[in-house]
Design a protein around this nucleic acid. Structure first.
Lengths: 337, 337
DNA sequence: CTGTTAGCGCATTCAT
DNA sequence: ATGAATGCGCTAACAG
């Protein structure tokens, strides 16, 4: 049980003045006698006084917090996004409540509820891979609480979104492989309800088309992002009458797993099969051969999303703008291709 | 600007009843007419009503949130601790406010203030490597808000702490190297104001002593955990008249950096120099050779710390118990030793 | 079973 | 320059 916390009333009583004056002194109001102000400030410090944001939030109808919901943060991607968001939010006097949905729709719904309970002033979210119903997010719009999507965005909601230019990133990755002489380029994609997956698939197809390579169905596979199931897809590729000479993976963990499996099967990378990932995780320089991958401006994504959110927070609902920001990618060529 | 949010008064007015009844219906109080309850619940849903935790917190003198301050979470360690903490906290109806101090004392102080402002019911913290003054944390004790330290703990504060048994972990790591025939075992340690570093150093010394190996000053170095400076320590080791035949690193990132540098210098691992890390980061299986390291029960650390905190929250200040929990480690032998 | 009243900590408006 | 009064949204004690 928490103790009684020092309040402005406690300070007022000790000083024999009214709580209004204490409040004014504490908030830096001009019309307070210099001496009074000093007495208040010094006593406040002595009594370990801290403002109570709950009560201020109640008055201001604002908690000065921003909610962030991410699928996970055991990999480096989301933590870095959060880092960027925190930078911007803190500078504007906002704090973050972070929740992990753990790729679970029910948890995401629960998280959204938590955000509402805590009166967040805005929400940043990257959805789970299984989220198909968006009622839990539409509530925010109805309530006039702005939402910004990042990375995993919702197509059917017209709110600001921040994504990397996945299509372009994938295009350059495939183009790079083609220029390296690869002709049978497989793509182990993620689930096709995810926007990023659709976009990267579009980039993949565009590149094949531009270089007049056939789009072969058996080379374009979708999987559920569960690393344990990568093996069966790799084996499928290897069992094809004409093996692929390159594999493009939907993300770095997938690419790294593919490389591990190929190495286990004594297949030379990149000579026999080249591998390219997406996202430039820290791990991509640690493995051998080092992974060629598409770098995303991850921290910037957090910064941009947070800034968009802060902009919306200041505006009236009617003035909300639903832009989608595309952040550029960069192909980092290493040894795996 | 956020819209007006539906309140119990809005519901009460529409239904022509008092707000107390609405409140009772919403909190599941028994003494509410079945029909009234249903009308309230259905209208609440229709109007997107959500409770306002700010006002409840104000009444209950509790925000139902727990604060967590960590130095960073770009590496997998802290995120996983948080994962464990969140599991326990959520189950008990608490939410998390997470702040990163970014290894910066000033930020840590600012973070602590944020926690106070937001009326957290308890604080979990792993300090920055430069924190030497603890006034910003002692305030919590004075205010009756419990603190639990984990990983990077404060020796001079008598509060619950959760750490892995660093001494034992280091001991087994060194013992393992000795049994592999290594005799000149270097230790690249972190700053010696950190408790973990002291403990691992103790384990290192104990092992040498037990196996009657001399403690050589030039083989025991302290560095500031900034990976960029690892190179100069490695070069120092390599320039010794008698090179070490093994290097024990304070953590996995350090070990991995050491391996990178050794490989660059064409030194065979583990034949010429073995390397052992500490923490079993995800990356340790990705590099070649795979890293031998001391595994810590990271998620469990978060769970235990959160549970200790919840226990304290329930208690009166006088009944707080300051135990230090030691979590066991496990040596994971791989190819680097 | 329900309504009335008070109060959580604070900012703010209206007095003085 | 200061005090008194009001209200943010809600729960709870008290009164019917």
């Amino acid at each position: 049980m928490k103790k009684h916390q020092t309040t402005i009333v406690d300070i007022a009583r000790k000083l024999g003045i009214s709580k209004s004056t204490v409040s004014r002194a504490l908030t830096g109001h001009l019309s307070v006698h210099q001496q009074t102000r000093e007495r208040v400030l010094s006593l406040a410090k002595e009594m370990d006084y801290e403002k109570n944001m709950l009560s201020i939030g109640l008055i201001k109808n604002s908690s000065q917090t921003i909610g962030i919901i991410v699928p996970e943060f055991t990999r480096s991607f989301f933590p870095e996004v959060i880092l960027g968001a925190q930078e911007i939010a803190n500078a504007a006097g906002y704090n973050l409540i972070i929740c992990q949905s753990e790729e679970n729709y029910e948890r995401e719904v629960a998280n959204a509820k938590v955000m509402l309970l805590h009166q967040v002033d805005g929400l940043m979210i990257s959805m789970t891979k299984e989220t198909l119903n968006f009622d839990h997010l539409k509530v925010f719009q109805r309530k006039g609480i702005p939402i910004v999507f990042f990375n995993r965005v919702c197509e059917e909601m017209t709110v600001p979104k921040v994504v990397v230019d996945d299509e372009e990133g994938a295009f350059y990755a495939i183009q790079h492989l083609i220029k390296k002489g690869k002709r049978k380029i497989a793509f182990l994609n993620g689930p096709d309800n995810l926007y990023v997956c659709k976009k990267r698939e579009a980039g993949y197809k565009n590149a094949l088309k531009k270089y007049k390579l056939p789009l072969e169905e058996q080379l374009l596979l979708h999987y559920n992002l569960n690393l344990e199931s990568v093996e069966k897809y790799v084996d499928y590729f290897l069992a094809l009458p004409e093996k692929p000479d390159a594999i493009f993976a939907i993300n770095d963990p997938t690419a790294i797993e593919i490389m591990r499996l190929l190495k286990k099967r004594k297949i030379k990378i990149p000579e026999e099969i080249a591998v390219v990932g997406f996202s430039n995780d820290m791990a991509s320089t640690l493995i051998e051969p080092q992974l060629t991958t598409v770098e995303q401006p991850v921290k910037k994504m957090g910064q941009v999303a947070a800034q968009l959110l802060l902009d919306q927070i200041k505006r009236n609902v009617e003035d909300w703008k639903a832009q989608t920001i595309l952040l550029g990618t960069k192909l980092v060529v290493r040894e795996s291709s």
